[in-house]
């Protein structure tokens, strides 16, 4: 979810070519949710293994990562740690939306209205802790680095981009801008749309505001820490208030945890404890996990595992010991 800046800020369409040779930090949770809602069978149901466990996220992590590497883009996955206390309300709202969707989906199935059922099925996407752990495990088998954020993944990814360790943050949400990420790329892990680049400097210059102002606009509109924002105030009104210099006074009065929320964006919990280097993949391990345990198609996985291996071997220039055992 996050803050909805949508069309109010400047962005430009880019191609994969523009990201060539660059490292990007992927907002892991955001991408996994996307995979869960978009990688589905024709009837709207997610991919499952024979035990009935949902495997859409593994499919996305595996094939998308390889797709990015093929385009000479190195993805560094970043996952959430402990959420800030203020996020509790947002999480409750999300749970409620899902529960309602689930009820409506069941009703639609009863009425045999499958179009409706598909619509609601997509909203019922639970990302379980086990799925997330398995995605991390899959990435480690693939030799792809991932980072465990102490708190919000987007805060950590933005920090890495600010430091220059990665070129941009990849997320569908705009929150990374509020954390000070110099660049955010959208639509990189989806298939349908062209990637979009949003540059923080351009946003601030275009709107003639500071990052603090942008954070204030977001708090007016509603963030994960004050869902809904200030009633009746959208982007345009918030922008006017910021420009006229009264925003802070209004926010202090209207938003209960204003100072705490600002602090989450301005001084987030982040870590320097991460490695960005690729490792040669564990070919057998990947096949065991995807094919034997999760019923992926062997031929397709095998082909991609070999591709992954060659891509990483070329990139890291790492040899194996095999030649010395002959």
């Amino acid at each position: 979810m996050g803050v909805q800046f949508g069309d109010f800020i400047p962005k430009k369409i880019i191609s994969f070519e523009d990201l060539k040779g660059k490292k990007v930090a992927i907002d892991g949770m955001n991408a996994l949710y996307q995979f869960l809602t978009s990688i589905r069978l024709k009837d709207g149901s997610p991919l499952r293994n024979r035990k009935g466990e949902i495997t859409s996220a593994y499919n996305g992590v595996f094939y998308k990562t390889i797709h990015l590497l093929e385009n000479d883009i190195t993805p560094i996955w970043v996952f959430d740690g402990e959420p800030p206390k203020l996020k509790k309300k947002t999480r409750e709202i999300r749970r409620k939306i899902k529960e309602e969707a689930e009820t409506k989906m069941k009703e639609a199935i009863k009425k045999e209205d499958f179009e409706e059922a598909v619509k609601y099925a997509k909203r019922v996407s639970y990302l379980t802790p086990k799925m997330v752990e398995n995605c991390k495990y899959l990435l480690s088998l693939m030799g792809i680095p991932y980072v465990e954020a102490p708190s919000e993944g987007e805060a950590q990814a933005s920090y890495m981009a600010k430091k220059g360790d990665v070129w941009a943050v990849v997320s569908q949400d705009y929150d990374s801008l509020l954390y000070g990420a110099p660049r955010v790329v959208r639509n990189l892990t989806t298939t349908r749309e062209m990637p979009e680049l949003i540059e923080l400097n351009e946003v601030l210059e275009d709107l003639r505001i500071s990052l603090d102002d942008l954070i204030d606009i977001a708090i007016f509109m509603g963030t994960d820490y004050n869902p809904g924002g200030v009633k009746g105030i959208g982007f345009k009104r918030a922008y006017e208030l910021v420009r006229s210099g009264v925003a802070k006074d209004v926010l202090k009065k209207e938003v209960e945890y204003y100072d705490e929320i600002r602090k989450i964006f301005k001084e987030p919990k982040v870590t320097d404890n991460y490695s960005l280097s690729l490792k040669l993949p564990d070919k057998e391990g990947i096949i065991k996990f995807l094919v034997d345990e999760n019923d992926f198609n062997y031929d397709r996985v095998k082909k991609h595992v070999d591709k992954l291996y060659n891509l990483i071997a070329n990139k890291t220039k790492q040899k194996t010991l095999d030649a010395w055992f002959k």
């Binding site: 490792k279 993949p281 040899k319 010991l321 095999d322």
Partner: peptide, 9 residues
């Protein structure tokens, strides 16, 4: 033993 990617022993 070798590590799974056969880089180290």
């Amino acid at each position: 033993a070798m590590d799974p990617s056969h880089v180290a022993l």
